[in-house]
Design a protein around this nucleic acid. Sequence first.
DNA 1: TGTATTTCTTAACTTAAGTGAACGAGTTAT
DNA 2: ATAACTCGTTCACTTAAGTTAAGAAATACA
Lengths: 192, 192
Amino acid sequence: MQDILFDFISKYVSLTEDEKNVLLSLDLFRSVKKGTTLLKEGQKSQDFYFVLKGCIRKYYIIDGDEKTTAFYTEMEALTPHCVISKTPSEYFIGCVEDSILLVSNSDMSEEVNSKFPKFDTMCRLLSEELLAKQQINFDEFKTSSPEQRYLNLLQNRPDLIQRVPQHQLASYLGIKPQSLSRLRARILEKKS
Amino acid sequence: MQDILFDFISKYVSLTEDEKNVLLSLDLFRSVKKGTTLLKEGQKSQDFYFVLKGCIRKYYIIDGDEKTTAFYTEMEALTPHCVISKTPSEYFIGCVEDSILLVSNSDMSEEVNSKFPKFDTMCRLLSEELLAKQQINFDEFKTSSPEQRYLNLLQNRPDLIQRVPQHQLASYLGIKPQSLSRLRARILEKKS
DNA sequence: TGTATTTCTTAACTTAAGTGAACGAGTTAT
DNA sequence: ATAACTCGTTCACTTAAGTTAAGAAATACA
Protein backbone atom coordinates (compact mmCIF):
# COMPACT_ATOMS: atom_id res chain seq x y z
CA MET A 1 0.00 0.00 0.00
CA GLN A 2 2.77 2.41 0.94
CA ASP A 3 4.38 1.55 -2.37
CA ILE A 4 1.72 3.64 -4.09
CA LEU A 5 2.80 6.61 -2.02
CA PHE A 6 6.50 6.08 -2.68
CA ASP A 7 5.92 5.49 -6.37
CA PHE A 8 4.10 8.77 -6.48
CA ILE A 9 6.74 10.71 -4.57
CA SER A 10 9.54 9.23 -6.64
CA LYS A 11 8.11 10.95 -9.69
CA TYR A 12 9.17 14.24 -8.14
CA VAL A 13 11.97 13.67 -5.62
CA SER A 14 14.00 10.68 -4.44
CA LEU A 15 13.77 9.42 -0.88
CA THR A 16 16.27 7.47 1.22
CA GLU A 17 15.15 4.44 3.21
CA ASP A 18 15.50 6.51 6.37
CA GLU A 19 13.22 9.18 4.99
CA LYS A 20 10.70 6.57 3.98
CA ASN A 21 10.67 5.10 7.47
CA VAL A 22 10.20 8.44 9.16
CA LEU A 23 7.38 9.18 6.78
CA LEU A 24 5.65 5.92 7.62
CA SER A 25 6.14 6.49 11.34
CA LEU A 26 4.07 9.68 11.10
CA ASP A 27 1.03 7.46 10.72
CA LEU A 28 -0.82 9.56 8.20
CA PHE A 29 -2.87 6.76 6.72
CA ARG A 30 -6.58 6.66 7.25
CA SER A 31 -9.21 4.19 6.18
CA VAL A 32 -12.51 5.79 5.21
CA LYS A 33 -15.90 4.20 4.56
CA LYS A 34 -17.94 4.89 1.45
CA GLY A 35 -20.35 7.75 2.03
CA THR A 36 -18.26 9.51 4.66
CA THR A 37 -18.16 13.28 4.39
CA LEU A 38 -14.59 14.47 4.87
CA LEU A 39 -15.24 18.19 4.60
CA LYS A 40 -18.44 20.21 4.76
CA GLU A 41 -19.36 23.58 3.33
CA GLY A 42 -18.66 26.30 5.85
CA GLN A 43 -16.01 24.31 7.71
CA LYS A 44 -12.45 25.42 8.12
CA SER A 45 -9.88 22.71 7.72
CA GLN A 46 -6.14 22.30 7.33
CA ASP A 47 -6.31 18.80 5.92
CA PHE A 48 -5.21 17.78 2.51
CA TYR A 49 -5.74 14.35 1.00
CA PHE A 50 -3.80 11.91 -1.09
CA VAL A 51 -5.70 8.91 -2.40
CA LEU A 52 -3.88 5.61 -2.00
CA LYS A 53 -6.90 3.49 -2.82
CA GLY A 54 -10.51 4.32 -3.61
CA CYS A 55 -12.18 7.49 -4.77
CA ILE A 56 -13.23 10.79 -3.25
CA ARG A 57 -15.14 13.66 -4.80
CA LYS A 58 -15.56 17.38 -4.45
CA TYR A 59 -19.11 18.71 -4.67
CA TYR A 60 -21.11 21.85 -4.10
CA ILE A 61 -24.70 22.04 -2.94
CA ILE A 62 -26.41 24.69 -5.02
CA ASP A 63 -30.14 25.32 -4.66
CA GLY A 64 -30.40 22.08 -2.78
CA ASP A 65 -28.77 19.77 -5.26
CA GLU A 66 -25.30 18.40 -5.53
CA LYS A 67 -22.89 19.54 -8.22
CA THR A 68 -19.86 17.29 -8.41
CA THR A 69 -16.88 19.08 -9.94
CA ALA A 70 -14.02 16.65 -9.40
CA PHE A 71 -13.11 13.06 -8.65
CA TYR A 72 -9.82 11.96 -7.15
CA THR A 73 -8.65 8.38 -7.47
CA GLU A 74 -5.43 6.45 -6.85
CA MET A 75 -2.29 8.62 -6.97
CA GLU A 76 -4.18 11.89 -6.95
CA ALA A 77 -3.89 14.66 -4.39
CA LEU A 78 -6.46 17.20 -3.27
CA THR A 79 -5.67 20.36 -1.35
CA PRO A 80 -8.99 22.04 -0.59
CA HIS A 81 -9.17 25.71 -1.44
CA CYS A 82 -10.01 26.58 2.16
CA VAL A 83 -6.62 25.26 3.28
CA ILE A 84 -4.87 27.81 1.11
CA SER A 85 -7.24 30.72 1.54
CA LYS A 86 -7.94 30.02 5.24
CA THR A 87 -11.60 30.79 4.65
CA PRO A 88 -14.60 28.50 5.27
CA SER A 89 -14.99 25.88 2.58
CA GLU A 90 -17.39 26.51 -0.27
CA TYR A 91 -17.75 22.85 -1.01
CA PHE A 92 -17.98 19.33 0.35
CA ILE A 93 -15.58 16.45 0.03
CA GLY A 94 -17.07 13.00 0.22
CA CYS A 95 -15.95 9.45 -0.09
CA VAL A 96 -17.31 7.62 -3.13
CA GLU A 97 -15.87 4.19 -2.29
CA ASP A 98 -14.27 2.62 0.75
CA SER A 99 -10.86 4.27 0.53
CA ILE A 100 -7.44 4.48 2.04
CA LEU A 101 -6.21 8.03 2.23
CA LEU A 102 -3.15 9.85 3.39
CA VAL A 103 -4.41 12.80 5.39
CA SER A 104 -2.01 15.50 6.40
CA ASN A 105 -2.42 19.04 7.65
CA SER A 106 -0.46 22.27 7.80
CA ASP A 107 0.88 21.62 11.30
CA MET A 108 2.14 18.24 10.28
CA SER A 109 3.52 19.48 7.02
CA GLU A 110 5.74 21.88 8.95
CA GLU A 111 7.10 18.89 10.77
CA VAL A 112 7.45 17.00 7.52
CA ASN A 113 9.05 20.00 5.86
CA SER A 114 11.67 20.44 8.56
CA LYS A 115 12.67 16.81 8.18
CA PHE A 116 12.49 16.76 4.37
CA PRO A 117 13.29 20.02 2.63
CA LYS A 118 12.67 17.98 -0.50
CA PHE A 119 8.98 18.11 0.24
CA ASP A 120 8.86 21.74 -0.57
CA THR A 121 10.41 21.02 -3.94
CA MET A 122 7.89 18.30 -4.54
CA CYS A 123 4.95 20.52 -3.68
CA ARG A 124 6.16 23.17 -6.06
CA LEU A 125 6.63 20.73 -8.90
CA LEU A 126 3.29 19.18 -8.12
CA SER A 127 1.39 22.45 -8.14
CA GLU A 128 2.99 23.49 -11.41
CA GLU A 129 2.10 20.18 -12.97
CA LEU A 130 -1.43 20.34 -11.64
CA LEU A 131 -1.85 23.88 -12.92
CA ALA A 132 -0.83 22.79 -16.40
CA LYS A 133 -3.12 19.74 -16.33
CA GLN A 134 -5.97 21.77 -14.92
CA GLN A 135 -5.70 24.32 -17.71
CA ILE A 136 -5.75 21.70 -20.43
CA ASN A 137 -8.70 20.08 -18.72
CA PHE A 138 -10.59 23.32 -18.46
CA ASP A 139 -9.96 24.09 -22.11
CA GLU A 140 -11.15 20.65 -23.10
CA PHE A 141 -14.31 21.10 -21.08
CA LYS A 142 -15.05 24.51 -22.54
CA THR A 143 -14.50 23.46 -26.11
CA SER A 144 -16.69 20.38 -26.07
CA SER A 145 -20.34 19.43 -25.84
CA PRO A 146 -21.67 17.17 -23.06
CA GLU A 147 -21.65 14.27 -25.50
CA GLN A 148 -18.02 14.88 -26.47
CA ARG A 149 -17.12 15.24 -22.82
CA TYR A 150 -18.67 11.86 -22.08
CA LEU A 151 -16.80 10.26 -24.95
CA ASN A 152 -13.56 11.86 -23.77
CA LEU A 153 -14.15 10.50 -20.29
CA LEU A 154 -14.77 7.08 -21.79
CA GLN A 155 -11.34 7.38 -23.41
CA ASN A 156 -9.35 8.96 -20.62
CA ARG A 157 -10.87 7.68 -17.37
CA PRO A 158 -13.06 4.70 -18.28
CA ASP A 159 -12.81 3.43 -14.70
CA LEU A 160 -14.73 6.46 -13.42
CA ILE A 161 -17.79 5.54 -15.44
CA GLN A 162 -17.84 2.16 -13.76
CA ARG A 163 -17.10 3.13 -10.20
CA VAL A 164 -19.07 6.35 -9.80
CA PRO A 165 -22.89 6.73 -9.54
CA GLN A 166 -24.46 8.07 -12.73
CA HIS A 167 -25.99 11.15 -11.14
CA GLN A 168 -22.59 12.22 -9.84
CA LEU A 169 -21.06 11.62 -13.24
CA ALA A 170 -23.80 13.65 -14.86
CA SER A 171 -23.14 16.75 -12.82
CA TYR A 172 -19.43 16.23 -13.38
CA LEU A 173 -20.20 16.45 -17.10
CA GLY A 174 -22.31 19.54 -16.49
CA ILE A 175 -25.73 17.96 -17.17
CA LYS A 176 -28.65 16.28 -15.38
CA PRO A 177 -28.83 12.51 -14.78
CA GLN A 178 -31.75 12.19 -17.20
CA SER A 179 -29.71 13.87 -19.92
CA LEU A 180 -26.83 11.49 -19.31
CA SER A 181 -29.15 8.49 -19.67
CA ARG A 182 -30.54 9.89 -22.91
CA LEU A 183 -27.09 10.77 -24.20
CA ARG A 184 -25.85 7.24 -23.58
CA ALA A 185 -28.87 5.77 -25.34
CA ARG A 186 -28.19 8.11 -28.26
CA ILE A 187 -24.57 6.95 -28.51
CA LEU A 188 -25.56 3.28 -28.41
CA GLU A 189 -28.05 3.92 -31.19
CA LYS A 190 -25.43 5.59 -33.36
CA LYS A 191 -23.04 2.67 -32.96
CA SER A 192 -25.55 0.12 -34.19
CA MET B 1 4.30 51.64 -17.12
CA GLN B 2 6.98 49.74 -15.24
CA ASP B 3 5.06 50.59 -12.10
CA ILE B 4 2.48 48.03 -13.10
CA LEU B 5 5.18 45.40 -13.18
CA PHE B 6 6.65 46.41 -9.84
CA ASP B 7 3.23 46.63 -8.22
CA PHE B 8 2.58 43.12 -9.39
CA ILE B 9 5.90 41.74 -8.19
CA SER B 10 5.58 43.47 -4.82
CA LYS B 11 2.53 41.35 -4.11
CA TYR B 12 4.85 38.35 -3.90
CA VAL B 13 8.41 39.51 -3.11
CA SER B 14 10.09 42.83 -2.36
CA LEU B 15 12.67 44.30 -4.71
CA THR B 16 15.52 46.74 -4.03
CA GLU B 17 16.06 49.70 -6.35
CA ASP B 18 19.13 47.94 -7.70
CA GLU B 19 17.13 44.89 -8.56
CA LYS B 20 14.49 47.01 -10.24
CA ASN B 21 17.11 48.70 -12.39
CA VAL B 22 18.71 45.46 -13.47
CA LEU B 23 15.28 44.14 -14.34
CA LEU B 24 14.52 47.17 -16.48
CA SER B 25 17.91 46.93 -18.19
CA LEU B 26 17.02 43.46 -19.47
CA ASP B 27 14.69 45.17 -21.94
CA LEU B 28 11.89 42.65 -21.80
CA PHE B 29 9.12 45.04 -22.81
CA ARG B 30 7.46 44.64 -26.14
CA SER B 31 4.77 46.64 -27.86
CA VAL B 32 2.34 44.51 -29.86
CA LYS B 33 -0.31 45.55 -32.38
CA LYS B 34 -3.89 44.34 -32.17
CA GLY B 35 -4.40 41.24 -34.27
CA THR B 36 -0.83 40.00 -33.93
CA THR B 37 -0.47 36.26 -33.40
CA LEU B 38 2.08 35.62 -30.68
CA LEU B 39 2.02 31.84 -30.78
CA LYS B 40 0.62 29.41 -33.33
CA GLU B 41 -0.62 25.85 -32.99
CA GLY B 42 2.21 23.42 -33.67
CA GLN B 43 4.94 25.92 -32.74
CA LYS B 44 7.44 25.33 -29.99
CA SER B 45 8.21 28.34 -27.86
CA GLN B 46 9.95 29.25 -24.65
CA ASP B 47 8.23 32.60 -24.23
CA PHE B 48 5.90 33.52 -21.45
CA TYR B 49 3.92 36.73 -21.27
CA PHE B 50 2.97 39.28 -18.68
CA VAL B 51 0.42 41.89 -19.71
CA LEU B 52 1.32 45.44 -18.69
CA LYS B 53 -1.35 47.03 -20.83
CA GLY B 54 -3.91 45.64 -23.24
CA CYS B 55 -5.36 42.19 -23.69
CA ILE B 56 -4.26 38.89 -25.17
CA ARG B 57 -6.20 35.69 -25.62
CA LYS B 58 -5.64 31.97 -25.89
CA TYR B 59 -7.63 30.14 -28.54
CA TYR B 60 -7.87 26.81 -30.28
CA ILE B 61 -8.92 26.20 -33.84
CA ILE B 62 -11.24 23.20 -33.85
CA ASP B 63 -12.95 22.09 -37.05
CA GLY B 64 -12.02 25.39 -38.60
CA ASP B 65 -13.43 27.72 -36.00
CA GLU B 66 -11.88 29.55 -33.11
CA LYS B 67 -12.56 28.55 -29.52
CA THR B 68 -11.32 31.18 -27.10
CA THR B 69 -10.62 29.72 -23.67
CA ALA B 70 -8.90 32.57 -21.82
CA PHE B 71 -8.26 36.30 -21.80
CA TYR B 72 -5.34 37.94 -20.07
CA THR B 73 -5.43 41.63 -19.21
CA GLU B 74 -3.39 44.04 -17.08
CA MET B 75 -1.43 42.31 -14.31
CA GLU B 76 -2.02 38.82 -15.60
CA ALA B 77 0.60 36.31 -16.63
CA LEU B 78 0.44 33.53 -19.19
CA THR B 79 2.87 30.66 -19.41
CA PRO B 80 1.85 28.57 -22.41
CA HIS B 81 1.54 24.87 -21.78
CA CYS B 82 4.12 24.15 -24.49
CA VAL B 83 6.77 25.99 -22.47
CA ILE B 84 6.33 23.56 -19.59
CA SER B 85 5.73 20.39 -21.56
CA LYS B 86 8.26 21.24 -24.31
CA THR B 87 5.83 19.93 -26.89
CA PRO B 88 4.34 21.78 -29.87
CA SER B 89 1.57 24.14 -28.83
CA GLU B 90 -2.03 22.98 -29.10
CA TYR B 91 -3.34 26.50 -29.24
CA PHE B 92 -2.83 30.04 -30.48
CA ILE B 93 -2.13 33.19 -28.55
CA GLY B 94 -3.31 36.40 -30.12
CA CYS B 95 -3.39 40.05 -29.32
CA VAL B 96 -6.91 41.43 -28.81
CA GLU B 97 -5.88 45.09 -28.39
CA ASP B 98 -2.72 47.10 -28.97
CA SER B 99 -0.74 45.93 -25.94
CA ILE B 100 2.44 46.30 -24.00
CA LEU B 101 3.78 42.98 -22.84
CA LEU B 102 6.69 41.72 -20.88
CA VAL B 103 8.01 38.76 -22.84
CA SER B 104 10.57 36.49 -21.27
CA ASN B 105 11.85 33.03 -22.07
CA SER B 106 13.53 30.13 -20.31
CA ASP B 107 17.04 31.22 -21.31
CA MET B 108 16.44 34.66 -19.92
CA SER B 109 14.75 33.40 -16.82
CA GLU B 110 17.90 31.49 -15.97
CA GLU B 111 19.72 34.77 -16.15
CA VAL B 112 17.00 36.46 -14.12
CA ASN B 113 16.96 33.62 -11.63
CA SER B 114 20.69 33.77 -11.04
CA LYS B 115 20.44 37.46 -10.30
CA PHE B 116 17.24 37.23 -8.23
CA PRO B 117 16.73 34.01 -6.35
CA LYS B 118 13.56 35.70 -5.17
CA PHE B 119 12.08 35.07 -8.59
CA ASP B 120 11.87 31.42 -7.94
CA THR B 121 9.90 32.11 -4.80
CA MET B 122 7.61 34.40 -6.71
CA CYS B 123 6.94 31.84 -9.41
CA ARG B 124 6.07 29.24 -6.85
CA LEU B 125 3.67 31.50 -5.02
CA LEU B 126 2.20 32.60 -8.31
CA SER B 127 1.58 29.12 -9.60
CA GLU B 128 -0.03 28.07 -6.33
CA GLU B 129 -2.28 31.10 -6.39
CA LEU B 130 -3.16 30.53 -10.03
CA LEU B 131 -3.95 26.89 -9.38
CA ALA B 132 -6.37 27.85 -6.61
CA LYS B 133 -8.03 30.55 -8.75
CA GLN B 134 -8.20 28.26 -11.73
CA GLN B 135 -9.95 25.57 -9.71
CA ILE B 136 -12.56 27.95 -8.37
CA ASN B 137 -13.07 29.25 -11.88
CA PHE B 138 -13.47 25.80 -13.33
CA ASP B 139 -15.98 24.85 -10.66
CA GLU B 140 -17.94 28.02 -11.32
CA PHE B 141 -18.00 27.29 -15.02
CA LYS B 142 -19.15 23.71 -14.54
CA THR B 143 -21.89 24.57 -12.10
CA SER B 144 -23.52 27.33 -14.13
CA SER B 145 -25.51 27.77 -17.30
CA PRO B 146 -24.29 30.01 -20.14
CA GLU B 147 -26.65 32.73 -18.94
CA GLN B 148 -25.33 32.56 -15.38
CA ARG B 149 -21.80 32.58 -16.72
CA TYR B 150 -22.51 35.73 -18.67
CA LEU B 151 -24.03 37.39 -15.60
CA ASN B 152 -21.01 36.35 -13.53
CA LEU B 153 -18.70 37.84 -16.11
CA LEU B 154 -20.72 41.03 -16.01
CA GLN B 155 -20.09 41.12 -12.27
CA ASN B 156 -16.47 40.02 -12.13
CA ARG B 157 -14.86 41.31 -15.32
CA PRO B 158 -17.25 43.87 -16.82
CA ASP B 159 -14.36 45.42 -18.77
CA LEU B 160 -13.97 42.25 -20.84
CA ILE B 161 -17.48 42.57 -22.24
CA GLN B 162 -16.61 46.02 -23.52
CA ARG B 163 -13.16 45.44 -24.90
CA VAL B 164 -13.49 42.00 -26.45
CA PRO B 165 -15.35 41.09 -29.68
CA GLN B 166 -18.67 39.32 -29.01
CA HIS B 167 -17.82 36.19 -30.95
CA GLN B 168 -14.69 35.70 -28.86
CA LEU B 169 -16.69 36.26 -25.69
CA ALA B 170 -19.27 33.76 -26.85
CA SER B 171 -16.81 30.93 -27.26
CA TYR B 172 -15.24 31.91 -23.94
CA LEU B 173 -18.69 31.33 -22.41
CA GLY B 174 -18.96 28.03 -24.24
CA ILE B 175 -21.64 29.06 -26.75
CA LYS B 176 -22.07 30.43 -30.30
CA PRO B 177 -22.15 34.16 -31.06
CA GLN B 178 -25.82 33.93 -32.08
CA SER B 179 -26.68 32.37 -28.75
CA LEU B 180 -24.89 35.16 -26.92
CA SER B 181 -26.89 37.78 -28.83
CA ARG B 182 -30.11 35.99 -28.00
CA LEU B 183 -29.11 35.52 -24.39
CA ARG B 184 -28.39 39.22 -23.99
CA ALA B 185 -31.71 40.13 -25.55
CA ARG B 186 -33.40 37.71 -23.15
CA ILE B 187 -31.73 39.33 -20.14
CA LEU B 188 -32.70 42.83 -21.28
CA GLU B 189 -36.29 41.69 -21.66
CA LYS B 190 -36.36 40.24 -18.15
CA LYS B 191 -35.05 43.48 -16.65
CA SER B 192 -37.79 45.58 -18.20
C1' DT C 1 -14.20 57.90 -50.76
C1' DG C 2 -16.00 53.81 -51.86
C1' DT C 3 -15.56 48.79 -51.52
C1' DA C 4 -14.68 44.69 -49.06
C1' DT C 5 -14.62 42.44 -44.80
C1' DT C 6 -15.68 41.64 -40.29
C1' DT C 7 -18.88 41.87 -36.61
C1' DC C 8 -23.27 41.77 -34.59
C1' DT C 9 -28.05 40.91 -34.68
C1' DT C 10 -32.40 38.74 -36.03
C1' DA C 11 -35.25 35.01 -37.66
C1' DA C 12 -36.88 30.23 -38.69
C1' DC C 13 -35.93 25.73 -37.90
C1' DT C 14 -33.42 21.68 -35.67
C1' DT C 15 -31.36 19.42 -31.93
C1' DA C 16 -30.21 18.68 -27.32
C1' DA C 17 -30.63 19.67 -22.52
C1' DG C 18 -33.92 20.93 -18.46
C1' DT C 19 -38.13 19.61 -15.96
C1' DG C 20 -41.59 16.86 -13.76
C1' DA C 21 -43.48 12.55 -13.28
C1' DA C 22 -43.63 7.62 -13.25
C1' DC C 23 -41.66 3.00 -12.99
C1' DG C 24 -38.82 -0.91 -11.76
C1' DA C 25 -34.52 -2.66 -9.60
C1' DG C 26 -31.60 -2.60 -6.00
C1' DT C 27 -30.33 -1.16 -1.24
C1' DT C 28 -31.05 0.03 3.58
C1' DA C 29 -33.35 0.13 7.67
C1' DT C 30 -36.52 -1.50 10.89
C1' DA D 1 -39.97 -9.58 5.44
C1' DT D 2 -41.58 -5.36 4.42
C1' DA D 3 -41.48 -0.62 3.99
C1' DA D 4 -38.80 3.39 2.68
C1' DC D 5 -35.08 5.13 -0.18
C1' DT D 6 -31.98 5.60 -3.68
C1' DC D 7 -30.79 5.06 -8.31
C1' DG D 8 -31.14 4.70 -13.11
C1' DT D 9 -34.13 4.90 -16.99
C1' DT D 10 -37.98 6.38 -19.85
C1' DC D 11 -41.59 9.60 -21.45
C1' DA D 12 -43.87 13.93 -22.61
C1' DC D 13 -43.25 18.57 -22.61
C1' DT D 14 -40.56 23.04 -22.18
C1' DT D 15 -36.65 25.79 -22.81
C1' DA D 16 -32.35 27.01 -24.57
C1' DA D 17 -28.55 26.35 -27.63
C1' DG D 18 -26.90 24.91 -32.55
C1' DT D 19 -27.47 25.82 -37.48
C1' DT D 20 -28.28 28.18 -41.60
C1' DA D 21 -29.24 32.24 -43.77
C1' DA D 22 -29.86 37.10 -44.35
C1' DG D 23 -29.20 41.80 -43.48
C1' DA D 24 -27.49 46.01 -40.93
C1' DA D 25 -23.61 48.36 -38.81
C1' DA D 26 -18.98 49.06 -38.03
C1' DT D 27 -14.15 48.57 -39.53
C1' DA D 28 -10.40 48.04 -42.48
C1' DC D 29 -8.16 49.21 -46.59
C1' DA D 30 -6.99 50.39 -51.06
